[in-house]
């Protein structure tokens, strides 16, 4: 808004604006801002769901950094999960996006099919795959056995359980990233390629000098969303492995969730500690974001926008 008009509020318009915007602002304050403030306050207290609420100062944080092996294991698992799956998901999405931006028969069909799984509920997908990966009855093992292999106990080994989580997550999300890349590719003006072709640039040169740099900003945004989304994975882990076996697939969010809502039996609830973990996790996510933006800054500086 232009600074010059700042002092010329139209009183009626201002009042109407406030009334119209009140609903959204109220929703945000009550359900986002106040909960955030309350988490900050809970950090300083100790409460296990029964007994008295005690003020403990920064003790919860000391505990996070000195006696929280399980949490840091969950942090490690989260990063293993995120980078493991993105290593496959992003290249796959990129390749498919390149292929499907060409004039190709059946393009819309392919695009719709690839994108379909991301429409479905993550929690329900978790349920579906508990069946498909089941040791004795599941389709995956039946197929492996049919090909002469041995059934894999997907759920009882930490590594296979983690791989399974990655497979399911890739299956659900590659299509949506493909879609983002396609939008990025389609927004590159065709004149650029025409001009380059006239100047005698080869396909390879066009790809390296036009496609890659022009895709930079979209790439930056998509990767950022994908990284943060993977680090925040919750529902899939809760419904597919629930951290089993013995915490080897526990991730940051599910670990925190269980500090507040217990693990089945209702044990291990610890509100103050959970709140401290929430804050530490938020800091970790922010650090990842800042580091990422810094690392990719050069890229966007060179190519602008």
């Amino acid at each position: 808004m232009d600074k010059r008009y700042r002092n010329h509020w139209d009183r009626k318009e201002v009042i109407q604006s406030y009334l119209m915007i009140a609903g959204s602002v109220l929703g945000m304050i009550v359900f986002v801002v106040i909960p955030l403030c309350r988490i900050m306050r809970w950090c300083l207290f100790s409460y296990k769901g029964y007994g008295t609420i005690r003020y403990v100062g920064l003790n919860n944080f000391i505990r996070v950094f000195t006696r929280s092996d399980k949490y840091w294991l969950a942090v490690k698992n989260t990063f293993v999960f995120a980078f493991g799956k993105l290593l496959v998901e992003i290249p796959l999405a990129l390749v498919l996006a390149f292929l499907l931006t060409r004039p190709l028969k059946g393009r819309d069909f392919f695009r719709s099919v690839f994108f379909m799984p991301s429409m479905l509920s993550v929690a329900v997908i978790g349920v579906v795959f508990t069946y498909l990966f089941n040791h004795n009855q599941g389709v995956v093992n039946s197929a492996i056995k049919l090909m002469g292999g041995q059934g894999v106990k997907w759920f009882s080994d930490g590594t296979t359980a983690m791989i399974m989580l990655m497979i399911v997550s890739i299956w659900q999300n590659f299509g949506i990233n493909m879609l983002f890349f396609m939008t990025g590719l389609q927004s590159i003006p065709p004149e650029l390629y025409e001009a380059a072709a006239i100047d005698g640039a080869s396909q390879r040169q066009q790809f390296l000098r036009i496609t890659i740099p022009m895709l930079g900003p979209v790439m930056q945004m998509v990767l950022m969303n994908a990284i943060l989304g993977s680090l925040k994975v919750t529902d899939l882990v809760l419904t597919l492995t629930n951290g089993k076996p013995s915490g080897k697939t526990e991730v940051m969010m599910t670990y925190i969730y269980k500090r507040f809502f217990g693990e089945g039996g209702g044990a291990a609830m610890d509100y103050g500690y959970g709140a401290a973990l929430t804050v530490v996790t938020a800091v970790i996510l922010t650090l990842v974001t800042l580091l990422y933006l810094r690392a990719t800054k050069k890229n966007s500086e060179i190519y602008g926008r």
């Binding site: 139209d10 604006s17 915007i21 945000m28 909960p35 988490i39 925040k232 969730y257 959970g274």
Partner: peptide, 30 residues
């Protein structure tokens, strides 16, 4: 379209909540 005091502040607040993605993190106080 509007023009009212606090417009930019409120807009900025909305932007922030998008990045925080409060859903899971604040589910208990919620």
């Amino acid at each position: 379209r509007g023009n009212f005091p606090g417009r930019n502040l409120l807009y900025w607040l909305f932007m922030c909540t998008m990045f925080i993605g409060a859903g899971t993190i604040t589910i208990f106080p919620l």
